[in-house]
Design a binder for these strands. Structure first.
Lengths: 203, 203
DNA sequence: TACATTATGTACCGGTCATTATGGAAATCA
DNA sequence: TGATTTCCATAATGACCGGTACATAATGTA
C-alpha cells in the first residue's frame, strides 16, 4: 500500500499533514545532521509521536532520504536551472549567486544539507554518507557534461580542463556552504562570490 | 603538576607512550569526527583502557583538544610557512599545493580534521565546534593580514577586496578538503589545484 | 620492610539512542 | 450499531554512550 494524494483509506484518517511534517524534519536534519538529529528532536519538531513517525515514514533513515528528496527538489532547483544558462560563465554565475541567495534567506538554516552530511561520522551513518556522496557526484557529472558541451560550442577554450574546472567550481560552492554554516557574514559571502566571478576564466 | 619529559614520578610508571597514544587518537578523530569517535574506538586504537585514558588526558573533550593541537602543529605547519612566501600568489600557491600534498599522502586519513569537525552535530559537541571555528578564524585572519600587506607592497592591486580574496581562497581550501574526504581522486584534485592557480588574479 | 603514590584492569553507573510492543481512543465503513 | 482500521500515548527493549569505583600491581621513599 502506497501513500497516495487522494487516499481512500478505510480506517481513521491521519491527523497530521505529512508534507509539513516532512518540512519540519528537513529543518532538523539540516541544522543537526543525520546523527545529530535524535528521534526526540524530530518528533518534537514534527509535532507527532514516535509510532506515528514510524508508521508514516518507516524509520529514521527512510525519513532522512525523504527529506533529502524534498531538499533537492525545493532548495536545490536552482542548480538544475543553472545548467540551462547559455554560457559556461552564465552557469557559474547562476550557481554562485544561487548559493549566495540561499544562504541569505533568513528563514532557512545555514549551510548545505548535503555538505553537512557528507563528512564522516559514526558507522551507523555510513550508508547515509554514501547516499549523499552519490547525489553530489550526480550533480558534479551534470556540470562536467555541461562544460564539455560548452567546449564543443566554442564557449570554453578548447584546451580547458573540464574536470579541473568542475572540481574548482564545486569546491567553491562547497566552501561557500561551509563558511555560511560556520557563521561567515552575508557581506563576506557576497565578497567571496564577487571575487570568484571576477576570477572566472571565461568571459 | 605538569607533564615533564624527564619525569621523576613517584608511583607506578605509565606503561604506554602518551605521544604515540595521542597520535593514534588523532587518526580516530580525524577519520570519524568528534562525535563519531567513541571511547571504545579511541581506547582500542590507543591500546589503553578507559581509566588510563582519563588519567592521562582528562576526558574525551580534553583529549580532542590535545589531538587538535597535534594536528595543527604537525599537519598544518605548511599553512604558517605559506604566509612567508614573497608574493600573494606565492602564498596561494603554497597553500593549494600544500593542501594537495597533504591529501596525496597515502598514510594519513583523507579530508581535513578542522573541516570535518566544523559542521554542526549534536548539542554535546557545540563547544568543540566553537573551538574548531575559532581556530579556523585565526587562520583566516592571518591570511587577511598577509594580503593586506601585499596590497601595501603593491603586490596586489590597490582595489583588491582582501576580505573577498581571503574568503575565496579559504573556500577553495575547504572545498579541496571536502572533496578529498569524499573520495575524489588525486588526479582530479590536482586538476582542481591547477585550475585554481590558473585563475588566481595576481601574477 | 612498610608506606605513600600512581597506573592498571574489571566491572559497573546512569543516561540516551533507535525501535517496537501494548493498549485504549477515535474515526471510517457496512 | 458493530466491525475494522488507524490513530495516539506510554513505556519497555537491548545496545551503546561517556565517565568511574574499586581493588590490585608497580614504583618511589624511609
Amino acid at each position: 500500500m502506497e501513500i497516495t494524494a487522494c487516499h481512500a483509506a478505510k480506517g481513521r484518517p491521519r491527523e497530521f499533514d505529512t508534507d509539513s511534517a516532512l518540512t519540519a524534519a528537513l529543518r532538523v536534519f539540516w541544522t543537526k545532521g543525520y546523527e545529530g538529529a535524535s528521534l526526540s528532536d524530530l518528533t518534537e519538531a514534527m509535532g507527532i509521536t514516535r509510532p506515528s513517525l514510524y508508521a508514516a515514514f518507516g524509520n529514521k533513515e527512510a525519513l532522512f532520504r525523504k527529506t533529502l528528496d524534498l531538499y533537492q527538489r525545493e532548495k536545490l532547483d536552482y542548480m538544475g536551472k543553472a545548467l540551462d544558462a547559455p554560457t559556461a560563465r552564465g552557469v557559474a554565475e547562476r550557481l554562485l549567486t544561487g548559493a549566495l541567495e540561499m544562504q541569505m534567506s533568513s528563514c532557512d538554516p545555514k549551510g548545505c544539507m548535503g555538505v553537512i552530511n557528507s563528512v564522516a561520522c559514526g558507522t551507523e551513518a555510513e550508508s547515509i554518507r554514501a547516499e549523499v556522496l552519490k547525489r553530489g557526484a550526480t550533480v558534479k557529472q551534470g556540470l562536467i557534461d555541461r562544460f564539455e558541451r560548452a567546449k564543443t560550442e566554442g564557449d570554453l577554450p578548447a584546451d580547458t580542463d573540464v574536470i579541473g574546472l568542475t572540481a574548482y567550481l564545486t569546491a567553491l560552492l562547497q566552501g561557500i556552504a561551509l563558511q555560511a554554516g560556520g557563521g561567515t557574514s552575508c557581506a563576506d559571502l557576497k565578497a567571496l562570490i564577487d571575487t570568484s566571478l571576477s576570477c572566472w576564466p571565461s568571459k
